[in-house]
């Protein structure tokens, strides 16, 4: 978990580290406080993980973390309870995620390059509009969008969820990349242009390779958001064959009531697994993305 890199030691750190006994005691108290807080924060998650291996009656009686016996059956039962085996839902979610990532990477980086490097009339105004759309609640546009996609016959397909990504509607990522590209030295562009690179050449050969960190942040966030997204999938995907992990979990909960909390928890853990994995691997990018743009 300690993948975070602290490149520079911040000033306050130096102050705190000049140690006397009193400072040592204070530091101990801080650690204690932080550890308690951290424990409270992640206890429910750890407990759910352990509950996913517990027999059903233990889920409702044992607040501890160690199951009396490990029940893999929660996982096997959860995997097969729904109309499709659970990997079908994972597969559907993966399709959406892949489409969304490709869409965001291509379309947002193109727009970002234009905003950051090219001059064209109305750039400032469009930039402002773009920032404004970051804040626009999806609820305001979802109904006409639904009507539109419905008329196109796209309800109960993945298109309503992927096409907007191909059209750079996740303006947040444009903003992220604009910030990043602006940080790149302009001399590179000019050198490329002297070498005969056109705008597309510069974009593809110079800017994109240098943008890898921003692209990685975009990909990871897109993964997490798409994987977690419930609202638009709830609206557009009703067909049992197209349902995704969040929809499957909801179906599971509504349909079995409390009969199989163990299996429900097991599938919840399965659903959270990929996010946790990306969190471990891509934490650096996530933190940077947040610090840069301040969203989620």
């Amino acid at each position: 978990m300690a993948t975070m890199t602290e490149t520079k030691a911040p000033a306050p750190a130096r102050r705190a580290q000049s140690g006397t006994a009193a400072v040592g005691a204070r530091r101990f108290v801080f650690h204690l406080l932080l550890t308690i807080a951290a424990m409270i924060m992640i206890y429910p998650l750890l407990w759910m993980l352990s509950a996913s291996f517990k027999p059903i009656d233990e889920i409702f009686s044992d607040p501890g973390l160690i199951p009396s016996s490990f029940q893999w059956s929660n996982y096997t039962e959860g995997w097969t309870t729904l109309p499709h085996p659970f990997h079908k839902y994972i597969f559907n979610s993966m399709i959406l995620v892949a489409g969304s990532i490709v869409g965001n990477l291509v379309s947002c980086s193109m727009a970002a390059y234009a905003f950051a490097r090219l001059r064209f009339p109305g750039r400032g105004a469009f930039f402002a509009i773009m920032l404004g759309t970051i804040m626009l609640p999806i609820h305001v546009v979802i109904i006409p969008q639904y009507i539109l996609f419905n008329n196109l016959g796209w309800v109960d397909t993945f298109w309503p969820l992927i096409v907007p990504k191909l059209l750079a509607t996740d303006a947040f990522f444009i903003f992220l990349m604009v910030q990043f590209i602006r940080g790149l030295p302009r001399e590179l562009d000019e050198a490329a242009s002297i070498d005969g690179c056109g705008y597309w050449g510069t974009y593809l050969r110079i800017i994109m390779p240098l943008c890898m960190p921003a692209l990685a942040t975009t990909a990871i966030f897109t993964f997490i958001w798409t994987w977690n997204d419930f609202y638009s999938q709830l609206i557009y995907l009703r067909d049992v064959d197209l349902q995704t992990v969040p929809l499957a979990l909801r179906l599971f909960m509504d349909s079995t009531g409390q009969t199989s909390w163990g299996a429900l928890f097991a599938m919840s853990i399965v659903a959270l697994g990929p996010i946790f994995g990306f969190f471990l691997v891509g934490q650096r990018y996530l933190v940077r993305g947040i610090a840069t743009t301040g969203i989620k």
């Binding site: 109309p83 049992v240 064959d241």
Partner: peptide
């Protein structure tokens, strides 16, 4: 609510559906 619907019972569909 659920308990009062005429269909009754909770759902645990068979895996075959749709194939």
């Amino acid at each position: 609510m659920k308990s009062n619907n005429p269909s009754g019972v909770s759902r645990r569909t068979l895996a075959k559906a749709g194939i």
